[in-house]
């Protein structure tokens, strides 16, 4: 029986009057690869960002390895954890972004090393060794000392994934990591993610690549208007959607 890594219960998030997440429940087992799909504005990226507290949330709980993320909840009282505590919790998850967000004044290796040195308090040589290992894993052994400005979009995104993975997170979050890439560079990034899936890394991927979601995920979550509308096995869901909404969405998306 696989162990539950992530447990989201009744997650609610509002921006002023507008409710973006209207009570999301979701449990993730160790080793699962979950693709989160849905039209823009469905709340899928927001949910991902709540998991590492890049977004505050107003209701519900998120627990990672049984530890509540972001807030102390006692009865009805709810208090944001300290900045230091939240930083520690964020390091438990890794995240890759649509826009890569590499630190432009640091080489590929330095980008990967920063967290290892500042957060994990590693010695420089130790961090360098880990950075080289992971950059090699994502196929960039020859680009270790290049600056982001000297790398293609696909290479930058692979450095960004190496930077997240090198921290040895319990869970990886991918937020539309191929959306900003030229079509011919998408494949190399998806290849890296496939490799991580094969290693047994637990992953949540927000994606528009339906073909990729179909191939790599063990479970698909379809979000619509701030709730999980349908979820299940990709082989089932993409072929025989149960809800009208999903059928509609699949028709307009690129999967075919």
């Amino acid at each position: 029986m696989a162990k539950t890594i992530l447990d989201i219960r009744g997650l609610r998030k509002t921006y002023g009057q507008h409710e973006v997440l209207k009570g999301v429940d979701c449990a993730v087992q160790e080793g699962e690869v979950i693709a989160i799909i849905g039209s823009s504005g469905s709340g899928k990226t927001t949910m991902l960002r709540c998991i590492n507290m890049l977004e505050e949330f107003q209701g519900g709980t998120i627990s990672l390895d049984g530890e509540e993320i972001g807030y102390h909840v006692e009865g009805t009282a709810r208090r944001r954890k300290s900045e230091k505590e939240i930083a520690r919790q964020r390091a438990l998850t890794g995240m890759a972004f649509q826009q890569f967000n590499l630190f432009p004044h640091m080489t590929a290796a330095e980008n990967v090393m920063l967290g290892l040195i500042k957060v994990k308090k590693m010695a420089k040589f130790e961090a360098r060794a880990i950075a080289e290992t992971w950059l090699d894993r994502v196929g960039l052994a020859s680009r270790v000392d290049h600056y982001p400005g000297q790398l293609s979009g696909g290479q930058q995104q692979r450095v960004a994934i190496a930077r997240a993975i090198a921290m040895a997170p319990r869970l990886m979050l991918f937020d539309e990591v191929t959306s900003a890439l030229d079509p011919e560079l998408v494949g190399e990034v998806l290849q890296v993610i496939k490799g991580l899936a094969a290693d047994g890394m637990t992953m949540l991927l927000v994606t528009h690549e339906m073909r990729f979601a179909y191939e790599v995920s063990s479970r698909v979550i379809f979000m619509n208007q701030g709730v999980i509308c349908e979820e299940g096995n990709p082989k089932e869901m993409f072929v025989r959607p149960k809800t009208e909404r999903l059928a509609e969405f699949l028709k307009t998306s690129s999967f075919n």
Binding site: L54, E83, A87, T93, F103, G115, A160
Partner: peptide
């Protein structure tokens, strides 16, 4: 955000 995500403090 990338800094926060790897666990750096502000």
């Amino acid at each position: 955000e990338a800094g926060l995500a790897i666990g750096l403090t502000s």
